[in-house]
Design a protein around this nucleic acid. Sequence first.
DNA 1: TACATAAACTATACGGCGTGAAGTATTTAT
DNA 2: ATAAATACTTCACGCCGTATAGTTTATGTA
Lengths: 239, 239
Amino acid sequence: MESVGNTKGRRERLRSETTAEIKKVALELMASGGPDAITLRAIAREMGMTANAIYGYFATRDDLVTTLINNVYTSLADTVDAAWDAAPAQDPAVRIQAWARAFRDWALANPEGFRLIYGDPVPGYRPPEGGAAPEAARRVCTGITALAAAAWPHAELRYSDGDFEWSDFDLGLLDKVRPAFPDLPPAAVALALRIWSHLHGLVSLEIYGHLQTQALSPEKLFREELAQLIRSLDIPPQS
Amino acid sequence: MESVGNTKGRRERLRSETTAEIKKVALELMASGGPDAITLRAIAREMGMTANAIYGYFATRDDLVTTLINNVYTSLADTVDAAWDAAPAQDPAVRIQAWARAFRDWALANPEGFRLIYGDPVPGYRPPEGGAAPEAARRVCTGITALAAAAWPHAELRYSDGDFEWSDFDLGLLDKVRPAFPDLPPAAVALALRIWSHLHGLVSLEIYGHLQTQALSPEKLFREELAQLIRSLDIPPQS
DNA sequence: TACATAAACTATACGGCGTGAAGTATTTAT
DNA sequence: ATAAATACTTCACGCCGTATAGTTTATGTA
């Protein structure tokens, strides 16, 4: 009965350490060999265990992948949130740029993670219904909504039409967005989603190499995209 | 020595028929079970053959997938090209809309094909260096360049800066683009690529379901994106 | 028409994968 | 000291791509 104080906690500690090592090794395998390299057998081999031992920690391989996705997605969300917070609140243009650059930089630094999150990452893997991944997705989207909200006072005139309604959007998203930005109309959320798709689209093409056969300087293209984005939001300089 | 006239051609014909059937079955499997379902054994099973028999037609599974990608990519390129040609040349806005809608409609009708082309389609598959896929990619990109070229007279003022140079783009692309549009500056190609990334990004998010946890009406979002795109190109109505 | 040849296909096998069932050793709790 | 829980292994099954060798069938030539 836990006489010393850590007798009971020992197994638990070992257990969480092993869990952490499994995830660590899986991420290393992913980094070196792509998402396809995440196999229970390879992880076990790396750890000097049997593949079946992992079943004591994760019910299936998909469960492990789901956990990894959650971790990676959270890391992305943390990164872009931090960049947003670090940028000066007075200047929306700078802030938006900071957010977008953080997103692209993260993707370029973690291409495998990007594919894990946004691609068809692992052979046969299908994401579960709920869980932390949609949560993190909404967190990222909320970040963009903050971005759109910061620009909305200036951009409103240009984007206020389009007859969007609240019912056009996912409730799980709105539950996060509306309390945070009570005055934002549906059109602003639509704008946020479109900004999101622009950034995602360009970075996605770059990460997957589909841009490579066309543009040799994705950086320049991204810079131009950002410049046009900010211009299209009608943000006055030094707001 | 081909005495009758078709004696020699028979084997060849049977061969090409079998090749066609392999591709057909593979595409059916992909349509029903996703890109992961493309396995030599499943194809052979469906055809009443041994998996190894396929090696007489395709050197490896990756070779088969590459061929499929080429076929599917070509079908996409044909579709958008046809939509472009069918739209009235006098009205760039309508033409651009036709192109974009054709792209999205094709993607929605062939989601598995879309993933095959633009995703991380099949376990462990890595595309070869050259081949028809980059070719088709450039064909699609050329289509967008035509789109940008049609709008350039009006959009020039807004996008002519950005200090792009020809060296920023892939030679294989420029070889197709520059002869077709001799007067187009580098900035217009950059604009084309950005338009491409916008459309691709939105459709990609929709196809992969990453939009589902956020927007319930991708159609409306796409319509708005198109409207803003055309507006941002400064195309006067009824040009 | 007989025969050599080439093509199409099968059989067998290897290693890798996820995973289920059963067994073993070690640690913990009573 | 003993019973229970935990961590892990062993074995097995069916899936995969693919290499090698063997077999059947169609073809071109003498």
